[in-house]
Design a protein around this nucleic acid. Structure first.
Lengths: 340, 340
DNA sequence: TTTATTTGTTCCAACGTTTGAACAATACTA
DNA sequence: TAGTATTGTTCAAACGTTGGAACAAATAAA
């Protein structure tokens, strides 16, 4: 015989012979309530295990103090680290977050957006799914609540954004590979319709050109950057008439797949083919050889995205923020020919 | 000049010259509302981009259709897969989930519980943090809403539970190691105060005894099972006067740490020391050598936990479910002496 | 034609909290 | 001692939605 009874402000009022409004004011430290009453109210609140009903207060105040976060997938160090830092920053400011994942699917993303809007979140912080090309749903968010994007976001939406300089990242990667005497550099890329991957491709091309190099068009291969994509494309590159002597992969997981294929084919990394990934996922330092990669500063991105949201809530009409962080190349064994 | 104006049932009513309650009934297909009115209402709802206000309806109905999920950390294949399957199952039944992570910290866990209760979720599905020994907060959940536990849960709480047979898992592991002619088997364990780890330890001891083996007490070493714990303890075992010839690690991440130390010390795995982890995290198949491990059926656990919740919501007084799944030993290179 | 039934709608109270206004009681000022 | 200020509380309306009861109009049954 269980009774899942939640106590309300009324119950406290009844115990103390007060009105609900007196209790409400006491709980929120209203100046006109006597210290004695406040103390009594707070004691009974604890005694009755009172939990404020968020639904009613949010309804009344028109503010939920809830922020929705949409990420492509939770099972990635980059995204979960961003997540954690968003949460940490917002918690300090009295907000709670609802995290959802799109699984890189447009349909799921739309569904999550609808749910979050229904819940009346005070804002949404998101990184777009790989599949997303239609921006309608994001425009819908914009018309209903605050929106901050990070990492994967489109300029067209004209909202606050935090990310790294993807164009420059490719320069760091290519310049380093060139310094390692690589000259036939292929690029396992993300889909060009996503801005960050487009920028990485653009940076890759420009950096090659700067060094007087050029890559055949079929050395830029777009994909979803999953493990199996990395494997498939690396095999494809190995089978091509002229093999590259370096491969720049736009994501670490795909880079791992590529590394597997290289090892399975007994190709020496980095001597025969050098390899560089993207994101600094923890496993890149654990593989044999360890994988060079680009650090995207996930901790800072989360913090900055949360702060951008907080600023916008405080002052909705301030001008749009675009925060672009400096990428950092982490050189490990897979691209360091000097070390070995 | 933006107007983040949300339209309400009142706006629709005003447009059509109806009352809000007529609109509400039309939207929920009340039988007494004429088809004509329903059509008109639904059209205007779309035209005005009407989004039902979840706060008010949840408040009124006393049901939020929101379920809180608390997991120790999101960045683990096991937990994120459970998560995904909980979400999938609950979504099909009209529920949305709010996922939170405790980061294995008791304080964070309590905070998350309070938030979820404040939000008035219809139930909580959780796996306890490593740190948690005091069950007060879980009893609090029980007194306020429905609670389902998975993987890490205590029997004392007497709530629905889904997990695997940890005692048996250890038997599978030890029996396999014995079949590989290992006789000095150490155990890098989780903390004994957590039931699942206690069970793994108990199974390990009993299985050893069954095979006429015994391990010195200092070969059962409890820890948080993080990467660095695995490294530290493995080093400790290597430095001990009599080295083990097999190590059974109660978590994959710690097993990876142990493997790193073994490789750094040029110890042949599995010939000199065999290694087995726990959870079937994806990276276990990617290491060199690949790591044997125990499959916990994360997909099923999520589905079953969600179903347990749904059943309890429908029928609060049905008797407590304890669903125990069969563990599955996945034999890979790190423990297979025959293969090599 | 009167009475009963069905249909489509409005009315109203409620969910739990918040907040400005109103009020009574006490304390301070002239 | 009357008048004003201060203090501590209650009152009442509101947030948006819901759902039972009430009601009027149209239709069916007697």
């Amino acid at each position: 015989m269980e009774n899942k009874k939640k106590s309300t402000i009324k119950d406290i009022a009844a115990v103390l012979g007060l009105t609900p409004s007196a209790v409400s004011k006491a709980l929120s430290d209203h100046p006109r309530i006597s210290e004695k009453t406040k103390l009594a109210v707070k004691e009974t609140a604890i005694k009755l295990d009172y939990q404020p009903n968020y639904l009613s207060s949010a309804l009344r105040k028109g503010k939920s103090n809830l922020v929705g976060v949409i990420i492509p997938r939770v099972n990635s160090h980059f995204f979960s680290s961003v997540m954690e830092n968003i949460e940490k920053t917002l918690n300090l400011n009295g907000y709670n977050i609802i995290m959802t994942q799109s699984n890189e699917l447009y349909a799921k993303e739309c569904q999550e957006i609808d749910t979050l809007l229904k819940i009346q979140v005070d804002g949404i912080i998101a990184s777009m799914a790989n599949e997303t090309t239609d921006l309608e749903y994001y425009k819908k968010i914009k018309s209903k609540t605050e929106l901050v994007l990070f990492d994967r976001g489109e300029e067209e939406l004209n909202v606050d954004y935090v990310g790294i300089d993807d164009y420059k990242s490719s320069h760091l990667v290519v310049d380093h590979l060139v310094s390692q005497k690589c000259s036939r550099i292929a690029h396992i890329a993300g889909f060009k319709h996503i801005r960050i991957y487009k920028e990485r491709i653009r940076g890759y091309k420009d950096a090659l050109e700067k060094s007087g190099l050029a890559a055949p068009d079929n050395w830029i291969i777009e994909s979803n950057l999953r493990l199996e994509d990395g494997r498939r494309i690396m095999q494809q590159l190995l089978d091509s008439p002229e093999r590259p002597d370096a491969v720049y992969v736009a994501g670490d997981i795909a880079a791992l797949g590529a590394l597997q294929i290289l090892l399975e084919n007994n190709i020496k990394v980095p001597e025969e083919i050098a390899l560089i990934g993207f994101s600094d996922e923890p496993f890149t330092s654990l593989t044999q050889p360890s994988i060079s990669t680009v650090n995207q500063h996930s901790d800072q991105i989360g913090k900055l995205a949360a702060e951008a949201f907080l600023q916008r809530i405080t002052n909705p009409k301030q001008k749009i923020n675009r925060i672009i962080l400096e990428p950092e190349l982490i050189i490990r064994q897979s691209s360091n020919r000097n070390l070995k």
